[in-house]
Design a binder for these strands. Structure first.
Lengths: 185, 185
DNA sequence: GTGATATATATTACATGTATCATATGACAC
DNA sequence: GTGTCATATGATACATGTAATATATATCAC
């Protein structure tokens, strides 16, 4: 249920089109939830059927018409209920990286190569991503109602991302050291 | 594609029934991949259609008959190809916990309560889980062909789990501190 | 004037994950 | 003798995620 709830959460701030929600999603929630635009459009349609959002067709000049969604009272109710329901907090992971490491003995050289990619890519994006998110937090802080208050929570999610990246980089390096030692035996 | 590949990976060690694979999965891969027995049965059927595994019906006394699967040459090929293909290493996450923290301003008390649950539950399972996995690694090390060699990779996955849990516990505590300070203002 | 990029929504098909139920038997506790 | 747990597989329905394609227009670079 997290996708519709993410959309409801964002719609609490502002009315928005599917297209803009898709971009907003990428900017804000993408570090912990990935959704494609086709999924967002489908989900919005379903949410309208359920009465959680309503939409208005807006005719534009020079561009395709757009459909602007807003959250309904019922949508707000659903969102608030979810905020008080037991969520899947110790969430199951589906992690292809660990799957491939687990069976790494089948191809040690390849596993080593992959671990280096993981280390390098995470290292490369850690700083720029942190900066980008910090900038976005500041932007939304002033443009979203109650943004000053919300921003503490956004910061928590950003902190998680940083801690996670650092953990992965260190873990990958440790694995690389072990593997290289083993392969050079 | 990770589920079928996980099953192929396990079938390389031994022939196995869907039921046993389901249990093995829970013991070994569950920390980074969750699969229900119904999904495993369905997947095995499909893999047999594709010729990646073959099965034999074994009549048992006193118990329901069982279907024993073994990996085929083609299955081994598919598995090895996958070990050399670019995997989704910087994997997307779908993390309901972070989703709920992100919108935490909608219900600070509830968010605080959840973060405490997260901290406590992860703390409670960290030690026992580590022990359990260490025991399992030792068990499989001697019972699986090439187990001595494979065990280094299993250990890496276990290390990841430990580092991840510690990171989450620390992060949750930091968030709790911040939130309590804010709420007591 | 051609191609790339951004705006905007929608459909199709398939892959994967979750939840619940159905079936069948043996062993064990109460 | 009843209920629960373990063994064993499967069907059904639905929810969710991914991939690819279609349509239509404006702007900008070359």
């Amino acid at each position: 249920m997290s996708l519709p709830l993410g959309l409801l959460g964002l719609l609490r701030y502002n009315t928005n089109t599917g297209y803009d929600l898709s971009k907003l999603f990428k900017e804000s929630l993408n570090s912990f939830w990935h959704a494609q635009h086709s999924q967002i459009h489908r989900e919005l349609t379903r949410m309208e059927e359920k009465g959680w959002v309503s939409s208005q067709n807006v005719i534009q000049e020079g561009r395709p018409n757009k459909r602007v969604y807003s959250i309904t009272d019922k949508g707000n109710e659903v969102f608030n209920e979810w905020m008080n329901e037991p969520a899947d907090l110790l969430c199951n992971r589906h992690n292809p990286l660990l799957m491939s490491v687990f069976f790494g003995a089948a191809s040690p050289q390849e596993t080593l190569r992959r671990l280096k990619i993981v280390r390098d890519e995470w290292t490369a994006i850690l700083e720029p991503n942190t900066q980008k998110h910090r900038t976005l937090i500041n932007k939304y802080k002033s443009s979203v109602p109650n943004g000053e208050n919300e921003s503490m929570y956004w910061q928590m999610v950003l902190d998680y991302g940083v801690a996670d990246a650092k953990m992965i980089i260190k873990w990958a390096q440790d694995c690389i050291d072990k593997l290289e030692k083993e392969l050079n035996k």
